[in-house]
Design a protein around this nucleic acid. Structure first.
Length: 443
DNA sequence: AGCACA
Protein backbone atom coordinates (compact mmCIF):
# COMPACT_ATOMS: atom_id res chain seq x y z
CA UNK A 1 0.00 0.00 0.00
CA UNK A 2 0.99 3.56 0.04
CA UNK A 3 2.77 2.95 3.18
CA UNK A 4 4.67 5.81 4.76
CA UNK A 5 7.02 3.32 6.25
CA UNK A 6 10.05 4.99 7.69
CA UNK A 7 10.41 7.98 5.50
CA UNK A 8 11.38 10.67 7.89
CA UNK A 9 11.75 14.00 6.19
CA UNK A 10 10.67 16.04 3.24
CA UNK A 11 7.40 14.40 2.56
CA UNK A 12 3.86 15.45 2.83
CA UNK A 13 3.18 12.27 4.57
CA UNK A 14 3.33 13.25 8.18
CA UNK A 15 0.56 11.55 10.08
CA UNK A 16 -2.10 13.96 11.24
CA UNK A 17 -1.60 15.74 14.48
CA UNK A 18 -3.38 18.41 16.43
CA UNK A 19 -0.09 20.22 16.17
CA UNK A 20 0.90 21.97 12.99
CA UNK A 21 4.39 22.92 12.10
CA UNK A 22 4.77 26.27 10.34
CA UNK A 23 7.84 27.51 8.60
CA UNK A 24 8.97 30.50 6.61
CA UNK A 25 7.34 32.81 9.06
CA UNK A 26 8.30 36.46 9.25
CA UNK A 27 10.83 37.18 11.88
CA UNK A 28 9.63 37.31 15.43
CA UNK A 29 6.13 36.29 14.50
CA UNK A 30 3.83 36.77 17.45
CA UNK A 31 1.53 34.38 19.17
CA UNK A 32 -1.39 36.60 18.26
CA UNK A 33 -0.61 36.25 14.59
CA UNK A 34 -0.52 32.48 14.93
CA UNK A 35 -3.84 32.40 16.71
CA UNK A 36 -5.26 34.67 14.05
CA UNK A 37 -4.08 32.29 11.41
CA UNK A 38 -5.56 29.18 12.98
CA UNK A 39 -8.75 30.63 14.41
CA UNK A 40 -10.89 30.08 11.29
CA UNK A 41 -10.33 26.35 11.59
CA UNK A 42 -10.84 25.73 15.24
CA UNK A 43 -9.70 26.53 18.67
CA UNK A 44 -6.01 27.21 19.04
CA UNK A 45 -5.07 25.98 22.47
CA UNK A 46 -1.38 26.45 22.27
CA UNK A 47 1.26 28.04 20.12
CA UNK A 48 4.98 28.27 20.00
CA UNK A 49 6.68 30.88 17.96
CA UNK A 50 10.19 31.92 17.18
CA UNK A 51 11.33 28.37 16.81
CA UNK A 52 14.47 27.26 15.08
CA UNK A 53 17.79 28.83 14.40
CA UNK A 54 16.19 31.60 12.37
CA UNK A 55 13.26 31.91 14.73
CA UNK A 56 11.04 31.70 11.74
CA UNK A 57 9.23 28.53 12.58
CA UNK A 58 6.28 27.96 14.82
CA UNK A 59 3.75 25.47 16.05
CA UNK A 60 0.01 25.70 16.42
CA UNK A 61 -1.89 23.26 18.51
CA UNK A 62 -5.63 22.87 18.02
CA UNK A 63 -8.05 21.61 20.59
CA UNK A 64 -9.17 18.90 18.20
CA UNK A 65 -7.41 16.87 15.59
CA UNK A 66 -10.15 17.60 13.04
CA UNK A 67 -9.48 21.27 13.30
CA UNK A 68 -5.86 20.73 12.39
CA UNK A 69 -6.90 18.54 9.51
CA UNK A 70 -9.30 21.25 8.38
CA UNK A 71 -6.57 23.80 8.24
CA UNK A 72 -4.15 21.57 6.40
CA UNK A 73 -6.68 20.47 3.85
CA UNK A 74 -7.95 23.98 3.32
CA UNK A 75 -4.56 25.32 2.40
CA UNK A 76 -3.73 22.17 0.45
CA UNK A 77 -6.43 23.07 -2.01
CA UNK A 78 -6.49 26.84 -1.61
CA UNK A 79 -5.23 29.10 -4.31
CA UNK A 80 -4.14 31.55 -1.65
CA UNK A 81 -1.37 30.23 0.57
CA UNK A 82 -1.42 30.77 4.28
CA UNK A 83 0.16 34.12 5.00
CA UNK A 84 1.45 36.10 7.91
CA UNK A 85 2.18 39.74 7.25
CA UNK A 86 1.94 39.00 3.56
CA UNK A 87 4.56 36.33 3.75
CA UNK A 88 3.70 32.81 2.67
CA UNK A 89 3.96 30.30 5.46
CA UNK A 90 4.15 26.58 4.91
CA UNK A 91 2.14 24.22 7.03
CA UNK A 92 2.36 20.59 7.82
CA UNK A 93 1.44 18.27 10.59
CA UNK A 94 3.98 18.27 13.29
CA UNK A 95 5.71 15.08 14.15
CA UNK A 96 4.66 15.64 17.73
CA UNK A 97 1.24 15.29 19.20
CA UNK A 98 1.33 18.27 21.45
CA UNK A 99 3.28 21.38 22.00
CA UNK A 100 5.62 20.88 24.86
CA UNK A 101 6.49 23.65 27.16
CA UNK A 102 5.15 26.33 24.97
CA UNK A 103 4.89 28.85 27.67
CA UNK A 104 8.54 29.55 27.62
CA UNK A 105 8.91 32.45 29.91
CA UNK A 106 9.73 34.61 26.93
CA UNK A 107 6.12 34.44 25.81
CA UNK A 108 4.42 35.12 29.10
CA UNK A 109 4.08 38.76 29.92
CA UNK A 110 5.70 39.43 33.23
CA UNK A 111 7.23 42.28 35.14
CA UNK A 112 10.80 41.21 34.41
CA UNK A 113 12.35 41.62 31.00
CA UNK A 114 15.19 39.62 29.57
CA UNK A 115 17.26 42.02 27.55
CA UNK A 116 19.94 40.90 25.17
CA UNK A 117 22.29 43.64 24.11
CA UNK A 118 23.57 43.01 20.63
CA UNK A 119 26.60 44.64 19.16
CA UNK A 120 30.34 44.39 19.20
CA UNK A 121 30.54 46.64 22.20
CA UNK A 122 27.52 45.29 24.01
CA UNK A 123 29.63 44.48 27.01
CA UNK A 124 30.57 48.11 27.33
CA UNK A 125 27.01 49.15 28.00
CA UNK A 126 26.89 50.04 31.64
CA UNK A 127 24.15 49.06 33.99
CA UNK A 128 23.53 52.75 34.47
CA UNK A 129 22.78 53.30 30.83
CA UNK A 130 20.36 50.41 30.93
CA UNK A 131 18.79 51.87 34.00
CA UNK A 132 18.42 55.18 32.27
CA UNK A 133 16.90 53.66 29.16
CA UNK A 134 14.38 51.53 30.97
CA UNK A 135 13.50 54.10 33.60
CA UNK A 136 11.74 56.04 30.88
CA UNK A 137 8.86 53.59 31.21
CA UNK A 138 8.55 53.35 34.94
CA UNK A 139 10.39 52.71 38.10
CA UNK A 140 13.05 50.10 37.59
CA UNK A 141 13.32 47.99 40.71
CA UNK A 142 16.32 45.87 39.94
CA UNK A 143 18.74 45.09 37.17
CA UNK A 144 21.09 42.18 36.86
CA UNK A 145 23.49 41.64 34.02
CA UNK A 146 25.31 38.54 32.96
CA UNK A 147 27.17 36.97 30.12
CA UNK A 148 25.68 33.98 28.38
CA UNK A 149 26.07 32.23 25.11
CA UNK A 150 23.42 34.59 23.88
CA UNK A 151 25.80 37.40 24.65
CA UNK A 152 25.53 40.20 27.11
CA UNK A 153 22.17 40.09 28.79
CA UNK A 154 20.30 41.87 31.49
CA UNK A 155 17.22 41.23 33.52
CA UNK A 156 15.23 44.35 34.19
CA UNK A 157 12.56 44.27 36.84
CA UNK A 158 9.57 46.57 36.77
CA UNK A 159 6.70 46.86 39.18
CA UNK A 160 4.25 45.12 36.94
CA UNK A 161 3.82 43.41 33.62
CA UNK A 162 2.11 46.42 32.08
CA UNK A 163 5.08 48.65 32.64
CA UNK A 164 7.41 45.96 31.45
CA UNK A 165 5.32 45.46 28.36
CA UNK A 166 5.36 49.13 27.50
CA UNK A 167 9.12 49.12 27.77
CA UNK A 168 9.39 45.94 25.75
CA UNK A 169 7.23 47.08 22.91
CA UNK A 170 8.95 50.43 22.75
CA UNK A 171 12.51 49.21 23.01
CA UNK A 172 12.61 45.76 21.46
CA UNK A 173 14.89 45.66 18.44
CA UNK A 174 15.82 49.28 18.90
CA UNK A 175 19.25 50.61 19.53
CA UNK A 176 20.46 52.44 22.56
CA UNK A 177 20.65 56.12 21.68
CA UNK A 178 24.13 57.12 20.74
CA UNK A 179 24.27 60.02 23.09
CA UNK A 180 23.87 57.67 26.00
CA UNK A 181 26.93 55.70 25.02
CA UNK A 182 30.57 56.66 25.18
CA UNK A 183 31.92 57.82 21.86
CA UNK A 184 33.99 54.74 21.21
CA UNK A 185 31.11 52.37 21.78
CA UNK A 186 29.46 51.07 18.65
CA UNK A 187 25.73 50.58 18.12
CA UNK A 188 23.97 48.36 20.61
CA UNK A 189 20.61 46.83 19.80
CA UNK A 190 18.22 45.59 22.42
CA UNK A 191 16.41 42.29 22.01
CA UNK A 192 13.78 41.97 24.64
CA UNK A 193 11.65 39.10 25.81
CA UNK A 194 9.92 38.45 29.04
CA UNK A 195 11.74 36.65 31.74
CA UNK A 196 10.13 34.05 33.89
CA UNK A 197 11.32 35.79 36.98
CA UNK A 198 9.08 37.98 39.02
CA UNK A 199 11.55 39.14 41.62
CA UNK A 200 15.25 39.21 41.03
CA UNK A 201 17.47 38.50 43.93
CA UNK A 202 20.18 41.07 44.14
CA UNK A 203 22.47 40.32 47.02
CA UNK A 204 24.91 43.11 46.44
CA UNK A 205 25.13 46.37 44.64
CA UNK A 206 27.78 45.97 42.03
CA UNK A 207 28.62 46.90 38.49
CA UNK A 208 26.71 43.79 37.42
CA UNK A 209 23.59 44.00 39.51
CA UNK A 210 21.66 46.69 41.21
CA UNK A 211 18.69 46.92 43.50
CA UNK A 212 17.21 50.38 43.22
CA UNK A 213 14.67 49.70 45.92
CA UNK A 214 17.38 49.20 48.47
CA UNK A 215 20.28 51.59 48.05
CA UNK A 216 21.73 50.58 51.35
CA UNK A 217 22.31 47.05 50.23
CA UNK A 218 25.92 46.09 50.83
CA UNK A 219 28.28 46.49 47.96
CA UNK A 220 29.54 43.33 46.42
CA UNK A 221 32.61 41.69 47.95
CA UNK A 222 33.94 41.46 44.43
CA UNK A 223 33.99 45.21 44.38
CA UNK A 224 36.09 45.39 47.49
CA UNK A 225 39.80 45.42 47.18
CA UNK A 226 42.36 43.77 49.34
CA UNK A 227 42.30 46.28 52.11
CA UNK A 228 38.60 45.91 52.53
CA UNK A 229 37.99 49.09 50.69
CA UNK A 230 35.07 49.15 48.36
CA UNK A 231 36.28 50.32 45.03
CA UNK A 232 33.24 50.13 42.83
CA UNK A 233 30.46 52.51 43.50
CA UNK A 234 26.77 52.37 42.91
CA UNK A 235 27.07 53.46 39.36
CA UNK A 236 29.73 50.95 38.58
CA UNK A 237 32.38 53.56 38.34
CA UNK A 238 35.12 54.09 40.84
CA UNK A 239 32.87 55.97 43.11
CA UNK A 240 33.59 55.81 46.73
CA UNK A 241 31.08 53.95 48.80
CA UNK A 242 29.13 55.68 51.45
CA UNK A 243 30.55 55.66 54.87
CA UNK A 244 29.74 57.04 58.24
CA UNK A 245 33.13 58.72 58.16
CA UNK A 246 33.65 61.70 55.90
CA UNK A 247 36.93 62.93 54.57
CA UNK A 248 36.87 66.67 54.26
CA UNK A 249 39.55 68.65 52.57
CA UNK A 250 39.59 72.37 52.75
CA UNK A 251 40.34 74.42 49.71
CA UNK A 252 41.44 78.02 49.74
CA UNK A 253 42.03 77.99 53.44
CA UNK A 254 42.50 81.70 54.03
CA UNK A 255 41.42 81.33 57.61
CA UNK A 256 42.46 78.71 60.04
CA UNK A 257 39.88 76.03 60.37
CA UNK A 258 39.99 74.55 63.81
CA UNK A 259 38.70 71.33 65.13
CA UNK A 260 35.98 73.23 66.89
CA UNK A 261 34.83 74.92 63.74
CA UNK A 262 34.64 71.63 61.97
CA UNK A 263 32.77 70.14 64.84
CA UNK A 264 30.26 72.90 64.75
CA UNK A 265 29.75 72.74 61.03
CA UNK A 266 29.34 69.01 60.90
CA UNK A 267 27.26 68.78 64.04
CA UNK A 268 24.48 70.51 62.22
CA UNK A 269 23.55 67.20 60.64
CA UNK A 270 23.87 64.88 63.56
CA UNK A 271 26.08 63.95 66.42
CA UNK A 272 29.72 64.03 65.50
CA UNK A 273 31.49 61.24 67.26
CA UNK A 274 35.08 61.84 66.35
CA UNK A 275 37.19 64.21 64.33
CA UNK A 276 40.76 63.83 63.28
CA UNK A 277 42.61 66.51 61.39
CA UNK A 278 45.82 66.01 59.54
CA UNK A 279 47.92 67.60 56.88
CA UNK A 280 47.98 66.20 53.45
CA UNK A 281 49.28 67.49 50.16
CA UNK A 282 50.10 70.78 51.75
CA UNK A 283 46.56 71.27 52.91
CA UNK A 284 44.44 70.27 55.78
CA UNK A 285 42.09 67.37 55.77
CA UNK A 286 39.82 66.01 58.40
CA UNK A 287 38.00 62.81 59.07
CA UNK A 288 34.61 63.32 60.62
CA UNK A 289 32.84 60.35 62.08
CA UNK A 290 29.10 60.06 62.46
CA UNK A 291 27.32 57.18 64.13
CA UNK A 292 25.65 56.13 60.92
CA UNK A 293 26.03 56.32 57.19
CA UNK A 294 22.78 58.15 56.62
CA UNK A 295 23.84 61.12 58.65
CA UNK A 296 27.14 61.25 56.85
CA UNK A 297 25.37 61.12 53.52
CA UNK A 298 23.16 64.04 54.44
CA UNK A 299 26.09 66.04 55.70
CA UNK A 300 28.11 65.33 52.60
CA UNK A 301 25.32 66.27 50.25
CA UNK A 302 24.66 69.48 52.12
CA UNK A 303 28.21 70.60 52.66
CA UNK A 304 30.05 69.49 49.57
CA UNK A 305 31.39 72.45 47.69
CA UNK A 306 30.27 74.96 50.28
CA UNK A 307 32.56 77.38 51.96
CA UNK A 308 32.90 77.71 55.66
CA UNK A 309 33.54 81.40 55.35
CA UNK A 310 32.11 83.97 53.08
CA UNK A 311 34.09 84.99 50.08
CA UNK A 312 34.95 81.53 48.88
CA UNK A 313 37.28 80.84 51.73
CA UNK A 314 37.76 77.40 53.17
CA UNK A 315 35.76 75.56 50.60
CA UNK A 316 34.86 72.06 51.67
CA UNK A 317 35.43 69.06 49.51
CA UNK A 318 33.92 66.04 51.03
CA UNK A 319 34.21 62.43 50.18
CA UNK A 320 33.53 59.25 52.00
CA UNK A 321 36.39 57.85 53.93
CA UNK A 322 37.30 54.25 53.91
CA UNK A 323 37.27 54.26 57.66
CA UNK A 324 34.33 53.31 59.76
CA UNK A 325 35.66 53.92 63.21
CA UNK A 326 38.43 56.30 63.97
CA UNK A 327 40.71 55.42 66.79
CA UNK A 328 41.40 58.59 68.69
CA UNK A 329 44.05 58.04 71.29
CA UNK A 330 44.43 61.54 72.57
CA UNK A 331 42.19 64.54 72.50
CA UNK A 332 44.07 67.56 71.33
CA UNK A 333 43.61 70.40 68.94
CA UNK A 334 43.66 68.10 65.96
CA UNK A 335 41.83 65.03 67.06
CA UNK A 336 38.97 64.46 69.38
CA UNK A 337 36.69 61.71 70.47
CA UNK A 338 33.44 63.29 71.54
CA UNK A 339 31.99 60.03 72.68
CA UNK A 340 34.46 59.53 75.50
CA UNK A 341 34.57 62.56 77.73
CA UNK A 342 37.40 61.35 79.92
CA UNK A 343 40.10 61.03 77.34
CA UNK A 344 42.71 63.50 78.45
CA UNK A 345 42.91 66.61 76.41
CA UNK A 346 46.48 67.25 75.64
CA UNK A 347 47.25 70.85 75.21
CA UNK A 348 49.68 70.47 72.46
CA UNK A 349 51.89 73.22 71.32
CA UNK A 350 50.56 74.98 68.28
CA UNK A 351 51.74 73.39 65.13
CA UNK A 352 51.75 76.01 62.51
CA UNK A 353 53.71 73.90 60.14
CA UNK A 354 51.46 70.99 60.59
CA UNK A 355 54.04 68.73 62.07
CA UNK A 356 51.89 67.72 64.94
CA UNK A 357 51.31 64.02 64.63
CA UNK A 358 47.72 62.98 64.42
CA UNK A 359 46.93 60.76 67.34
CA UNK A 360 44.83 58.28 65.62
CA UNK A 361 45.14 54.91 64.15
CA UNK A 362 42.46 53.91 61.79
CA UNK A 363 41.61 50.29 61.08
CA UNK A 364 42.93 48.69 57.98
CA UNK A 365 45.35 51.52 57.50
CA UNK A 366 48.96 51.56 58.47
CA UNK A 367 50.14 53.93 61.09
CA UNK A 368 49.91 57.46 60.02
CA UNK A 369 53.20 58.55 58.59
CA UNK A 370 52.38 62.01 57.51
CA UNK A 371 52.40 61.52 53.79
CA UNK A 372 50.73 58.29 52.89
CA UNK A 373 47.78 58.46 55.09
CA UNK A 374 44.60 57.20 53.51
CA UNK A 375 46.20 57.04 50.11
CA UNK A 376 43.10 55.91 48.33
CA UNK A 377 40.71 58.44 49.69
CA UNK A 378 39.30 60.27 46.76
CA UNK A 379 39.48 63.81 47.89
CA UNK A 380 42.55 65.35 46.43
CA UNK A 381 42.59 68.89 47.37
CA UNK A 382 43.29 71.31 44.57
CA UNK A 383 46.10 73.51 45.73
CA UNK A 384 44.79 76.91 46.54
CA UNK A 385 46.67 79.56 44.73
CA UNK A 386 46.77 81.79 47.72
CA UNK A 387 48.75 80.73 50.70
CA UNK A 388 47.41 80.69 54.15
CA UNK A 389 48.97 81.08 57.48
CA UNK A 390 49.08 82.80 60.80
CA UNK A 391 49.12 86.21 59.22
CA UNK A 392 45.51 85.89 58.30
CA UNK A 393 43.28 86.64 61.22
CA UNK A 394 41.40 83.66 62.43
CA UNK A 395 37.94 84.96 62.08
CA UNK A 396 35.93 82.26 63.78
CA UNK A 397 37.44 82.71 67.15
CA UNK A 398 34.41 84.49 68.38
CA UNK A 399 32.27 81.54 67.55
CA UNK A 400 30.51 79.66 70.27
CA UNK A 401 32.73 76.72 70.96
CA UNK A 402 30.86 74.33 73.06
CA UNK A 403 32.25 71.01 72.10
CA UNK A 404 32.31 68.45 74.83
CA UNK A 405 29.67 65.84 74.32
CA UNK A 406 27.63 68.31 72.50
CA UNK A 407 24.20 66.88 71.96
CA UNK A 408 22.81 66.54 68.52
CA UNK A 409 21.63 69.82 67.20
CA UNK A 410 19.18 69.88 64.38
CA UNK A 411 20.37 71.38 61.13
CA UNK A 412 20.36 75.09 61.19
CA UNK A 413 20.77 75.63 64.85
CA UNK A 414 24.46 76.01 64.51
CA UNK A 415 24.79 77.51 61.15
CA UNK A 416 22.67 80.57 61.28
CA UNK A 417 24.88 83.33 59.99
CA UNK A 418 23.87 85.46 62.94
CA UNK A 419 25.43 82.96 65.26
CA UNK A 420 28.27 82.04 63.08
CA UNK A 421 30.21 85.18 62.89
CA UNK A 422 31.38 86.68 59.66
CA UNK A 423 30.03 85.07 56.59
CA UNK A 424 29.78 81.54 57.78
CA UNK A 425 28.38 79.16 55.20
CA UNK A 426 27.15 81.80 52.87
CA UNK A 427 28.20 80.26 49.65
CA UNK A 428 24.73 79.23 48.80
CA UNK A 429 22.14 77.91 51.11
CA UNK A 430 23.07 77.05 54.63
CA UNK A 431 22.30 73.49 55.59
CA UNK A 432 19.12 74.47 57.29
CA UNK A 433 17.60 75.48 54.01
CA UNK A 434 19.12 72.83 51.83
CA UNK A 435 16.65 70.55 50.21
CA UNK A 436 16.21 67.25 51.95
CA UNK A 437 18.45 64.53 50.86
CA UNK A 438 17.19 62.56 47.92
CA UNK A 439 18.67 59.27 47.18
CA UNK A 440 17.51 58.60 43.70
CA UNK A 441 14.47 56.43 43.66
CA UNK A 442 13.99 55.01 47.07
CA UNK A 443 10.70 53.13 47.00
C1' DA B 1 11.49 26.36 3.65
C1' DG B 2 11.87 21.28 6.84
C1' DC B 3 10.32 20.04 14.02
C1' DA B 4 11.11 22.98 19.60
C1' DC B 5 14.39 24.57 26.86
C1' DA B 6 16.15 29.76 27.52
Amino acid sequence: MASVSSQPQFRYTQPPSKVLHLRNLPWECTEEELIELGKPFGKVVNTKCNVGANRNQAFIEFADLNQAIAMISYYASSSEPAQVRGKTVYLQYSNRQEIVNNKTAADVAGNVLLVTIEGDDARLVSIDVLHLVFSAFGFVHKITTFEKTAGFQALVQFSDAETATSAKTALDSRSIPRYLLPDHVGPCTLRITYSGHTDLSVKFQSHRSRDYTNPYLPVAPSAIDGSGQISVGLDGKKLEPESNVLLASIENMQYAVTLDVLHMVFSAFGPVQKIAMFDKNGGVQALIQYPDVQTAVVAKEALEGHCIYDGGFCKLHISYSRHTDLSIKINNDRSRDYTIPNIPIVNSQPSILGQQPVQMIAPAVPQYNGTQFAPTDQAVMPQPSAGWGPTVPAVPQSLPLQMHNQPYMPPGTLLQPSQMGPGMMQSGAPPATLPPYHRGHVQ
